[in-house]
Design a protein around this nucleic acid. Structure first.
Lengths: 357, 357
DNA sequence: GGTGGCACTCCACTCTAGTGAGTGCTGACG
DNA sequence: CGTCAGCACTCACTAGAGTGGAGTGCCACC
């Protein structure tokens, strides 16, 4: 088995401990393979690599490097006598050692600028459109997770009558979010009683995060008012306990269809995207492990094994208040995706900062 | 051309004016072809049709009927010596002459019951989950359009301070919808002034539909309050003019991936689904033309030419207040889809009726 | 160590039957 | 005259053989 010998030889020569650092030329070869494969989606042959800028050796030399890279797990061959394809580990190295930070290009920057110049008013609307923007910029599917309202204090509690026995509880949080809940009442009531109940709820709830609201209700003497207050307090409490799934906006899901040729891959990835909670926790998990890119099986979600995800936190005053995610095939354009996520994330942070304080 | 003669002969015999009514056996043959094709997605041969219940003639006879049906445009042949496939016209006849009303089956009904037993509080949340339910029931992509707030009167206008120069305008409508808009103020303000401004806005706006709010603002003597009022009035006006795109909830889009084998069909259909406005107006158009099913090219949207859409209005007290749509390939299970749309639509109408009045 | 050369591998493509489901036509029958 | 069995024909689909070419691994040489 000359291959094994060769392998050991290479390892001894370039002591890449756990594949951390690669010999300069090997790195260039790997880089060329990844770049080319991202572009063409075809297995890359040694000749193409030899022609690539940055590699100035013959194809024969490239071949021997490729053998080594394959043994170390950076490259794979669909079959003998085919070119090489990057493995997840190969992509990982590529991403970790990106030199140029990547650029959106003139058109992209212009697009971002225009977008944020015209964005206005409603936060949810803006986040939704942001997902569309990101998808346009990167040709990936984009996910935008809205700010979490966990810690936001209650700024206003109001009961609005909708009918004799129906009211709407409207809660405004300090970050500008509005939570609401329709309430069925056991008895007829009127605006005065609703106002009284609102006032009482407000007295106990203002300034406190929604999740920590306590239910102390003082009798007023009027049975109906007390009933309204009690029912509303219950509803308020439920608003707090309902795990306030952060809002998720998905844009450009149609781009998945052309990213993968296997129909069932598309199917299962779309299926995942429909599960809001899964996506949100997935993005959070990736951030929590300190990554900004998760490639292939690195995140645990099995149906996304052939995908890569780029994440970028959106933070205001240091506090994390949202997430941007880009989902594509493992051979996605990482530099572009990273650049887009960074730029849009920054602009989004600014914008949110103007509102949340 | 014996074919042509045969054709004319058949026409003379069974005078199907513009294909309106088919000879009984022909109808049975067409029915069998459609049913079988919906099930198998394979061209249907004369032998299969002859074996089908309801058709008690030999395959040869079926064949001659099929020729006639093909000439009249109900069936098509992918190529000579292949079985027949229904055309859009064929599906249309099938749908228009459905005998049995279609049933959800025991499991489906149970699912619907459980869903509406557990549905609670937040309307948007419920509509969103309804789209998921419909997708589960029918294996189609489901679209649910929320109630339009066009005519709903304003029940409450409130300004909530978020920062010294930032406030949130919260408008509650009679149907329980909440509209909001962040407002940048030119100068610092306080809660008292916001309350004053709120009161003034309320005085002019309560009871009026959002779209018809007028802007009469009376000076109070306090410059800051007036500024707040003016800015808010402007925002209120904008809320009314911004074409309040009815909310669209799409569920089960992943099912598109397995409905079509052509990747670019999936791609383009998903693309359409991303355009909220297009979908909403499409559903409305179909309803306006008096159809409950649009097959193939019947709706104008070209990328959806290989799709069929089942629509069902959701109405409360006679007033239309939402739409249900089911999107699938033209060979979707029409009886099931119609049944599901009807049942869920009815339950949804009831539910919305409890809230909106 | 790097390079050119060479034999080898194996996918992708084409071409060629062969197969079989399905059709259209025809002639006979009640 | 509608219905039906029989028959020749069509044509997508499949399998197998042959071929071209991109790509590899190895080796001798520089």
């Amino acid at each position: 088995m000359p291959n094994t010998e060769d392998h050991l030889l290479n390892r001894a020569k370039a002591p890449s401990i756990a594949g951390e650092v690669l010999d300069g030329r090997r790195a260039a070869v790997l880089n060329a393979v990844v770049t080319e494969y991202i572009e063409t989606a075809q297995p890359v042959g040694s000749q193409h690599v030899a022609d690539a800028p940055g590699v100035s050796v013959s194809s024969a030399t490239v071949r021997s490097d490729m053998v080594a890279l394959e043994h170390e797990g950076y490259l794979a061959q669909p079959h003998t006598s085919a070119g090489r394809i990057p493995t997840d580990k190969g992509y990982r190295y590529f991403v970790d050692h990106l030199r140029s930070p990547g650029s959106l290009g003139r058109v992209g920057r212009q697009q971002v600028r225009e977008f944020f110049d015209h964005a206005h008013g409603e936060i949810e609307e803006m986040l939704k459109h942001t997902s569309g923007l990101l998808a346009d910029l990167t040709d990936c599917t984009a996910m935008v997770v809205g700010p979490s309202h966990d810690g936001a204090a209650i700024r206003s509690v109001q009961l609005v009558g909708l009918g004799p026995r129906m009211a709407l509880l409207v809660v405004v949080l300090a970050d500008g979010a509005v939570q609401k809940c329709t309430i069925d009442l056991a008895d007829d009531t009127d605006d005065d009683r609703l106002a009284d109940a609102s006032a009482q709820l407000a007295a106990h709830a203002l300034g406190i995060p929604l999740a920590q609201v306590s239910l102390v209700v003082q009798p007023t003497g009027d049975a109906v008012t007390d009933m309204v207050t009690a029912t509303s307090a219950l509803a308020l409490n439920r608003l707090g306990t309902v795990l306030d799934t952060d809002q998720l906006f998905v844009g450009g899901s149609s781009r998945l269809a052309e990213a993968f040729d296997a129909v069932d891959t598309v199917r299962s990835v779309l299926g995942i995207l429909e599960q809001q909670l899964v996506v949100v926790t997935l993005l959070r998990d990736i951030l929590d492990t300190g990554l900004s890119v998760a490639i292939g099986a690195e995140h645990g979600v099995e149906p996304l094994a052939s995908c890569a995800i780029v994440v970028m936190p959106v933070s205001v005053d240091g506090a994390e208040s949202g997430t941007i995610g880009l989902l594509g095939p493992t051979r996605m354009n990482y530099p572009l995706a990273l650049a887009a996520a960074r730029v849009v994330g920054d602009r989004l942070s600014e914008r949110l900062g103007e509102v949340i304080r």
